[in-house]
Every structure is written in structure tokens, then in C-alpha cells.
Nucleic acid binder design. Structure first.
Length: 491
RNA sequence: GGCGACGUACCCAAGUGGUUAAGGGGCGGGUUUGCAAAACCUGUAUUCACCGGUUCAAAUCCGGUCGUCGCCUCCA
């Protein structure tokens, strides 16, 4: 049996118990991108939040059908394609390929369905047909409009009132200012399909209604997306789907907060302050980005500044290093026996490990509170490290840290953090950070070697001079039992 | 102008009626170290934008003020 959970529903503005349409199953539709440009770290927040949410649900034994669409027919795509002298669909294709690169770099799960507008024209037309037949839509001068006044509940998601909206451009053939296009009459140079209402292409909102129905049915469990989509996009989806099918469209609306710049403004293409995903993951491990998102509650605005990723990387390294320490411990006695000999730190670690899963999932079950859940992980990390200071821990502590290792596995499975082995992680940190700082690792190795020789000769002055030089290059040298190791300074 | 969200330490941030206000980063002190680093210990908010109210009890509820942000046009 899947574990029950609670989630904030934009529709009711409350945290509610989740009740699925079909027992044990979650149908999740998340608005993907309009592929006219590359994805930036603001998009990535939505991707990562819902990716982690799906992992968590599955770990909690829900069967999840996850859908994330591409909008590949759209005004902005056409405009951009024309600027670049290429076919709109080709531009979209190019950006979808780039998206998949970014998604893989971020370690995102593959949704069950990634529908595209251009491949769902029949479904879209079928739904428009229903709306026209039901007199929720009308055709005027080649364009088919949704008649907003025909849907009494319009505004229930966003709280917007039709009359309160700012005055809009007067468009020929449009009956009400809030009406929006379902099917746009074709213009030269635009992607065009035949339809009962004349040649044209879908409007912006209809595709999500149609694709959600095709992939998940007329009522879906959870519809997700960025907070900025609530109005008009999601409001219009509700209007279309509920008018067409006469039943609830989405039971829960889950919106992630937006990234804001240190200036306070959101990150947005129209504001010209974007950092693309590929730029960020070239400089830092993708998991640092993931941790950066998950350390905050998904609904809060999240400030972005240049310290964000270094800070997140420092946190992530703390997690990996603690797990490394725990994995290195040996021993085959009963945990309780070892704990009795090794004292209260061992007992505390065993206690925290035993309580971990319940506390961790209590946090996630209450509106996916990853911030709170992660604080428990860090408590566990401190307990592991404290225990590891005991001289006998290395040889006998294995049974004591076993529970903590299970806990780290839970974190990996349910959030997608700690997914690498520590060597791969540290290697990635070195590669990316050194490249970012323009440092050749071979130079570092040479200096380390020279310093090792100086130390062997007890030439402390030389050894310290080299350490200082390395420190200038943001390199930490760790003199351990097995010789000198070096790592990139994270902060 | 309409709709909505938010304001917790140097920074990020959890907490939404009741023990000493989580956790992370940073900074200071200590243990450790040839020197360091990592790790651990310790100090960093008698207080939760401000004012008033409800209550035995509020960061948490109510009212007001100030400030910030999002949406109302494309936006994750």
C-alpha cells in the first residue's frame, strides 16, 4: 500500500490529503517548455522539484505515470525561427534535443510520456470540436475562440475575475476580451494543419488540455508547473477541459515558486538575466544544483546569486564525505555490543538512524517539505562524523553506521541526491571547478609531488610555501595516513 | 487599478498556538595537526519587519502600517 501524503493545492489554497483517482496510482502532468530557446536554471527548478517528487512517490510505493510535454508550435518559436531563417518545427526539434541533453545532465528521470503539440493535432482538434459543439467556442474570421463567459467557474484556480483583468487589445472577431484562441487561422510561413475550422494551428493553452487527456484521462491527479503559469495558462486549461468533459480536470494543482535574482526580480528570458542549465552544470556537479533547489521548500521564491552553487556544493560535499567515512568503517559484531563499548556517540547515531526514515518521510509527506527532510540528513551526518572521531570506530564501527548508510540510500532513492559513488563525485568536482578556474590539474599534481618530497626531507619552509601557492589556486591539501590528497576548495 | 504570496540571525532557511526558535553556509574561539585541511566542540536571534488586539500562552491567530515579490502580456 502506498503511503498517504498531503500536498498544497493551489485550487483550494490549502494543504490537503491526497486522494487519487485510481487507488495506488498518481497521474502527474507537468508543463514542460516552449522550446524556442535553451532551458535555464529557473526551468531547472521546476524540472528538479517534480523529478524528486516522482522519485519520492515511487519510493513510497505509488505507481506514477509522469507526463511532461513540449510546446513546439507557438508564436515565439515561429518568431525566433523566422529571425534565424529556419523552419519553426526544425528550431523546436533542435531545442528539444538540447533539452534532452540538459535533462540528462541534471539526472532527470524520463517521463512516461513527452508529448509534443505537433504530434497531438488530432487530439487537439477532437477537443476543440467538443467545445464548439458544446457552444463553449466559436469561429470568427478563421480563428476559433474559447468563449470565457460560457464557463461559469472561470477564475476558480487563479482567483482572477474576468472583469478585473486589464484591458486588452481589441482583436477583430473576439467577443469577450478574456476569450482566447483555440485554433489560429494560418498565416504564410507558419506551421499549418487542416481542420474543420479552416487551416491553422493550435492556440497556446489547448495543447496541455488535450495531451493531459490523451496520456492520463479526463481527470488527472496532479497538475504541476511554475507559479507563473497559474494565470492564464492553467486557468484556461481548466476552462477547456472541464467544459469539454464536464468533470474535474485536475484534482490537485502543484506550483513551484520562481527563482529570483539577488535584485529580487525573477529570472526570466524577457528580463535578460538568465543562466542556462548547461552553463551551470559545466561549472558545478548537477547534484549541487539539485541540492540547492531542494534545500528550500518548493513553493517559496528561491534567491539566486553567485554564491548559491558554491554553497550548495559545500553542503553536498559534506554529505558525500560523511557517507564515505561511514562506508569505510569495518566490523562484524552486533551493533549494540559495539555501541556499549564505544559510548554515547555510537548510541546516539544508532538512535538517529533508527528514527530517520519516519522523520524524513513525515517531512516529505507534509507538502513535500524537502528543506525539513534534509535538515534530518544533516543531523545524521554530524552524528556519523562525531562517531567517526572515535579511534576504534574505523575498525569496529561498521555495524553502528549501517543504519546511517541505509538512510543515505533512502535519500538517494527518494530525492536523487547522493546518486554517485564518492570517487566519481570528487572527480567531477575537480574537473569542473578546475576548468572553471582555468587551472590545469597536472600543474597541481606536480606541486603536490614537489611538496611531498619537501616534507620527506623535512623542508617545512618549502612545503608550506607550496601549500600557500596551492591555497592561492583554491586547492586544499590534506595530509593523511596514505599520503597527500588534494581537493578543490569549495567556498 | 485587480488578484495573490511573503518579510525569522551576516547569508540561505525550517518552524504556523505551549519544553532551551531546526538545518546549512559564513565568521570568531578551542580540540587535532610539523604547518594545514577535514571532522568534532563552542560562540554567533531573550527573539521572529513594525504597531495594536485575542489568549493563561503567539514567530505562529486577528486588525492596521511599512517593505519586497509574483500574476493580470510570453514565461518553469
Amino acid at each position: 500500500m502506498p503511503a498517504p501524503f498531503r500536498i498544497y493545492n493551489t485550487l483550494s489554497r490549502r494543504v490537503e490529503d491526497f486522494e487519487p483517482v485510481r487507488p495506488g496510482h498518481v497521474g502527474l502532468y507537468v508543463c514542460g517548455m516552449t522550446v524556442y530557446d535553451r532551458a535555464h536554471v529557473g526551468h531547472a527548478r521546476a524540472f528538479v522539484v517534480f523529478d524528486s517528487f516522482v522519485r519520492y512517490l515511487r519510493h513510497r510505493e505509488w505507481e506514477v505515470t509522469f507526463v511532461r510535454n513540449f510546446t513546439d508550435v507557438d508564436d515565439k518559436i515561429i518568431k525566433r525561427a523566422n529571425e534565424r531563417g529556419m523552419e519553426p518545427i526544425a528550431l523546436a526539434e533542435e531545442n528539444i534535443a538540447l533539452y534532452h541533453q540538459d535533462a540528462d545532465a541534471l539526472g532527470l528521470l524520463h517521463p512516461e510520456h513527452e508529448p509534443r503539440v505537433s504530434e497531438c493535432i488530432d487530439d487537439i482538434q477532437e477537443m476543440i470540436g467538443r467545445l464548439v459543439d458544446g457552444e463553449h467556442a466559436y469561429v470568427s474570421e478563421g480563428t476559433t475562440w474559447y468563449a470565457v463567459p460560457s464557463f461559469e467557474e472561470y477564475g476558480k484556480l487563479s482567483g482572477q475575475k474576468v472583469d478585473g483583468l486589464r484591458s486588452e487589445d481589441v482583436v477583430a472577431g473576439k467577443r469577450h476580451p478574456a476569450d482566447f484562441a483555440l485554433w489560429k487561422a494560418s498565416k504564410p510561413g507558419e506551421p499549418t494543419w487542416d481542420s474543420p475550422w479552416g487551416p491553422g494551428r493550435p492556440g497556446w493553452h489547448i495543447e496541455c488540455s488535450a495531451m493531459a487527456k490523451t496520456t492520463l484521462g479526463v481527470t488527472i491527479d496532479i497538475h504541476g508547473g511554475g507559479l507563473d503559469l497559474v494565470f492564464p495558462h492553467h486557468e484556461n486549461e481548466v476552462a477547456q477541459s472541464e467544459a469539454a468533459h464536464d468533470c474535474a480536470f485536475a484534482r490537485y494543482w502543484m506550483h513551484n515558486g520562481l527563482l529570483t535574482m539577488s535584485s529580487g526580480q525573477k529570472m526570466g528570458k524577457s528580463l535578460g538575466n538568465v543562466i542556462n542549465i548547461d552553463e551551470a552544470v559545466a561549472r558545478f556537479p548537477a547534484e549541487a544544483l539539485r541540492l540547492y533547489y531542494l534545500q528550500n521548500h518548493y513553493r517559496s521564491p528561491l534567491p539566486w546569486d553567485e554564491d548559491a552553487l558554491p554553497t550548495a556544493l559545500a553542503m553536498l560535499s559534506r554529505l558525500y564525505e560523511a557517507r564515505e567515512v561511514a562506508e569505510a568503517m569495518k566490523g562484524s559484531e552486533e551493533a549494540a555490543d559495539v555501541a556499549r563499548d564505544l559510548g554515547p556517540d555510537a548510541q546516539e547515531l544508532i538512535r538517529l538512524s533508527a528514527d530517520f526514515e519516519d522523520r524524513f518521510f513525515d517531512a516529505l509527506d507534509e507538502d513535500f517539505n524537502t528543506s525539513k527532510a534534509l535538515s534530518y540528513v544533516f543531523e545524521l551526518v554530524r552524528a556519523v562524523n562525531r562517531f567517526s572521531n572515535h579511534k576504534k570506530a574505523r575498525k569496529r564501527g561498521g555495524p553502528v553506521v549501517a543504519g546511517a548508510l541505509v538512510a543515505f540510500g533512502i535519500v538517494r532513492d527518494s530525492l536523487g541526491l547522493l546518486a554517485m559513488d564518492v570517487d566519481a563525485f570528487m572527480g567531477e568536482v575537480k574537473t569542473k571547478r578546475l576548468a572553471d578556474m582555468g587551472i590545469d590539474p597536472a600543474d597541481i599534481d606536480a606541486l603536490i609531488e614537489e611538496r611531498t618530497a619537501a616534507r620527506a626531507a623535512k623542508d617545512w619552509a618549502r612545503a608550506d610555501a607550496i601549500r600557500a601557492e596551492l591555497t592561492d589556486k583554491h586547492i586544499e591539501v590534506r595530509d593523511g595516513a596514505g599520503g597527500a590528497e588534494w581537493r578543490v576548495r569549495l567556498s
